[in-house]
């Protein structure tokens, strides 16, 4: 089984995010980065399928030169090779999906596994856009995947419970939080990953124009909530809820 997975470089979800004074973007000085957590889960799942069924796992990352760090991380987890598509400026999810479509057409994987959402832009769009652009089926928000040669049975986390669906391969699956616990690469694996193939491409050779459909004109800090106060005990809390907040 040939599986394509994605590794997006995102700001560390544990770091404080500040919007620049002029609203032109966020302040990236002293920011650290990592693989989008959902992509880490997708990579882990791809590796488990490969370990079970054999095959190859290819990690794709789109972004500046620095995006290679996150692709290498996927390689150190155990993926076979990487593809880096160099794009230096702003991309929306649509541009990412169109670049991925063109890579999928070249590589012809049986399965494409992505994260359900980027934790920076919180778009939750690429998997669905890619599925439609390819004319494939999609199984988003997966918490369990069982694949055989031609099909996958996927459990999806939906409002109201767990939905179970069948998807023809090749197909698109996006990973939710509870699909698995990603492994940590060991030091020898990190050393070995440095020698793995990482092919660099650009959007022109893939025939994709970088023309975003949605553009961020301005950013602002959302209104901040004022902290309240610590109360002594339950009777005081009840009084506050009744007399001040008037919610009971």
């Amino acid at each position: 089984m040939k599986i394509l997975v994605t590794a997006k470089r995102v700001t560390d979800p544990d770091m404080k995010i500040k919007v620049k004074e002029d609203g032109s973007g966020i302040d990236l000085s002293s920011m650290s980065y990592k693989v989008n957590p959902f992509d880490e889960i997708a990579i882990e799942e791809a590796l488990r399928i490969k370990e079970d069924k054999g095959g190859e796992v290819i990690v794709v990352g789109i972004g500046s030169d620095k995006a290679q760090t996150e692709i290498r991380y996927g390689l150190s987890m155990g993926a076979n090779r990487g593809i880096h598509v160099q794009v230096d400026g702003y991309m929306d999810s649509d541009v990412v999906a169109r670049i991925l479509k063109s890579i999928v057409e070249k590589e012809q994987p049986d399965l494409v596994l992505l994260g359900k959402q980027s934790v920076d832009d919180d778009n939750n769009q690429v998997s669905q856009l890619l599925a439609e652009y390819l004319g494939w089926g999609q199984a988003c928000f997966a918490s369990k995947i069982d694949v055989n040669e031609t099909k996958a049975i996927v459990e999806r986390e939906v409002d109201g419970g767990i939905e179970i669906m069948e998807i023809d391969l090749p197909g698109i699956v996006s990973a939710d939080l509870r699909l698995n616990e990603p492994r940590y690469p060991a030091l020898p694996a990190i050393m070995k990953a440095k020698k793995k193939e990482l092919k660099k491409m650009n959007p022109e050779e893939l025939g994709v124009e970088i023309l975003p459909k949605v553009i961020i004109k301005k950013m602002a800090e959302p209104p901040q909530r004022k902290g309240g106060r610590i109360l002594e005990d339950v009777p005081e809390l009840i009084r506050a809820l009744k007399e001040e907040a008037k919610v009971i």
């Binding site: 919007v19 919180d122 950013m219 800090e221």
Partner: peptide, 14 residues
């Protein structure tokens, strides 16, 4: 909102 609710973005659709 983006970045886990830390950023409010004003978006133009082309």
């Amino acid at each position: 909102e983006m970045w886990a609710g830390n950023v409010r973005a004003f978006i133009e659709v082309t």
